[in-house]
Amino acid sequence: MSFLSKQWEGVWSLSPVLVFDESRKIDDDDVALYELVNQHRNFINILQRYLEFREKDKTTQVLDKFRLRMTRYLDRDSGIVNKWLSFACERSVKEVDLSLEIAWNKQLEFYYCLSPISLLNANSALSVLIWECPSIEFLSLNTCSFEDSAFRVSSSNLKSLEITHCDARYIRVDKAVNLEYFTFSSEFWVQNMTLNASFNLKYISIHARGLRNLSLQGCHHSAKANIHTPGLLLFDFHGFLKSKLSLEAPYLRTAIIALSDIYDGESHYFSELRDFLKAFDGIDQINLHVCDFKGLIFPENFRETFSSPLTSLKYFGVYMSNSPTKAKDYSEIKASMTWMAPSATRFWYPWPRLPLI
């Protein structure tokens, strides 16, 4: 249409869905290098040309989807990528699909850096966009790194978050109240991870060899978590007894556990509580936070029937909202703690050192 009339030139760029895909031929290895360079240069020219067309449009039309797939990415291409991402954010883009691959020398490593000039008119980076954007529902990040070594997200509409092969020392998901699925898998040296106040979080999958500290502070009452963290040293869990935790952490030393559904008179909790605690047997220290100390008083016949859940624990601390005042309650809580961790040094405090959910 552009050949027929200049009036049509660039009209397609006003579409609410923009897809730029630099195709790669199957026989790329047989194509001369100069030809590949020319093809890539032409693709970059297309990106620059139609960005100019789109920027001339003075309307505030919302962009539904922006996809950029580059299969011959070079370091110098970061400028046009930044401009398109910035433009997409100005148009309140609903879906972004960004894939930058290298096809030249496999020994070269060109990374696209998510720098503070990447998005939102050079005022913030991707982390800030995701932290503040209320529209994102499904987010998948694959093979990326972060300039400040930290990735943070807080989005009220976010339902699914998947992070794979990303280089960040710290991952934090905060107050994603509608988040249901969280997946993290990376061989990079991620040291700290926090999932905070995501009370609808139901499915958690974490595979991180180098992770040292993991904090799950608030999740769905029946959350299922599959956690494979060979290097984990500290695990902080604030949630519910009905949560199903599959934890593979052979070097785990300390667990902080706050349970919000342990109350007096709920006898059906005893088997669940024993099984829950047994998953942490073998570590050095557990700090357990409960609302009512009576929820930890296992009946005598139960203690005589079932074995202790924490046979090798060294230090066992219980923090509770109330404290036994009667001699009978004092004796029963002491007997229960002795049964739960027979080899541990035991102590309790009549107030929670950590805020209960």
Rank of each mutant, 00 (worst) to 15 (best):
L241I: 02
C166F: 10
V177W: 03
S118I: 02
Q107F: 13
D261T: 05
I283N: 07
K224R: 13
E22N: 11
F138C: 15
S118L: 00
T71F: 09
S99W: 09
E101M: 12
G231R: 02
N42T: 15
A150H: 05
D236Q: 04
H40W: 01
V37Y: 06
S115N: 05
S222P: 00
E300K: 11
S215L: 04
E22C: 14
L310C: 06
S15N: 06
L141R: 06
N123T: 15
D77H: 15
S260I: 12
A255W: 00
I297L: 04
L241D: 09
S78W: 00
T143V: 04
L14I: 10
P134Y: 03
R209N: 10
G239A: 01
G239F: 01
I171F: 15
L33P: 00
E9S: 12
I102E: 01
N82G: 11
H220N: 13
L356E: 08
L214T: 00
N213M: 07
I130T: 14
F199E: 11
Y330L: 09
S115C: 11
V96S: 04
S127G: 08
N192S: 05
E248W: 09
I44D: 09
S145N: 04
F146W: 07
L313Q: 02
L120W: 10
P16D: 02
M340V: 13
K278A: 04
I46D: 13
S343R: 12
Y73R: 12
N178M: 02
A225D: 02
L245M: 08
A122L: 12
P352K: 08
S2N: 13
Y330R: 11
R24G: 01
L63P: 10
P324D: 15
M70V: 11
D264K: 14
A208S: 11
A341G: 15
S308Q: 08
P309W: 02
I283D: 07
I136G: 04
S156R: 13
D167C: 13
D292L: 00
K244Y: 06
S135E: 10
D64C: 13
S156G: 05
L74N: 08
E132A: 12
D28A: 13
D275Y: 02
L310G: 07
